[in-house]
């Protein structure tokens, strides 16, 4: 039901290794390059943020685990470029001369970089009236899944599936990733922050009273009497 990226609560990953505060932002030169190529290619407007996340999530578990962070980005980018017909497999493999692209008019020019980075891509939209209010108790759907697309993109982490929590924040309506990742439209719906007691999620929490909150769309939730 889940994919490899949905790892919250997993055992066995070993210690976290903090970086010094003053470590370089990009540990290797190619890391910055990978980030920049990904952002510049995204600016061509051929896929949504949700679709690009799904492309990374669709790496095989073996690749996802073996790849470093920016290798995952490159893997996702290569898949999107081919799926959208922006490049051909032969071009990618160096077996064909690169053909001029009809999308070149959408190229991100250097002068537009500050504006594009500063404006971002807000996901707030007008949409339906929220069904839940702050303080309401809700249950997260179980299993965690994209209801319309088997194996599709979703933002309900598996560890929260079936758990009961309390709505602590309302964020208005936001683009629904489960549809937006799959060319099914933005379908905006209310987004909530739901707080779960750690004992509800893990059975034996590190300390009673600790909590974990997730940002969850209304479709993921049902009321609890």
């Amino acid at each position: 039901m889940t994919r490899v990226h949905d790892m919250g609560g997993r055992f066995g990953d070993g210690p976290v290794r903090p970086d010094p505060e003053d470590a370089p932002v990009f540990a290797e030169d190619w890391h910055g390059r990978a980030l920049a190529v990904t952002l510049a290619a995204g600016a061509l407007g051929q896929w949504t943020l949700d679709r690009s996340r799904h492309a990374r999530e669709c790496l095989s578990p073996k690749d996802y685990t073996a790849f470093s962070y920016y290798e995952k980005w490159l893997g996702g980018l290569a898949a999107l470029l081919v799926e959208q017909g922006v490049v051909t497999r032969d071009e990618l493999a160096g077996r064909a001369e690169p053909a001029p692209s009809p999308l070149s008019g959408r190229r991100l020019p250097v002068a537009a970089v500050p504006r594009v980075l500063a404006s971002g891509g807000p996901t707030g939209r007008d949409g339906p009236t929220p069904r839940f209010a702050v303080g309401d108790r809700v249950r997260a759907m179980r299993p965690a899944r994209n209801v319309a697309v088997p194996g599709g993109h979703t933002r309900l982490p598996a560890y929260a599936a079936g758990a009961v929590g309390e709505v602590v924040l309302l964020h208005g309506c936001h683009v629904f990733p489960d549809t937006n990742a799959h060319d099914m439209g933005e379908a905006p719906e209310p987004l909530y922050t739901v707080r779960f007691d750690a004992g509800e999620l893990w059975g034996a929490p590190e300390r009673a009273g600790d909590t974990v909150s997730c940002d969850l769309w209304e479709s993921y939730l049902e009321p609890v009497a």
Binding site: W30, R33, A40, V110
Partner: peptide
């Protein structure tokens, strides 16, 4: 990365100056 960047540049899809700016 280099291969992707070169390919996209050759196709007229990325401006290397924009990458430097990012």
């Amino acid at each position: 990365v280099k291969a992707l960047e070169s390919l996209l540049e050759a196709k007229g899809l990325i401006d290397p100056g924009a990458l430097d700016a990012i």
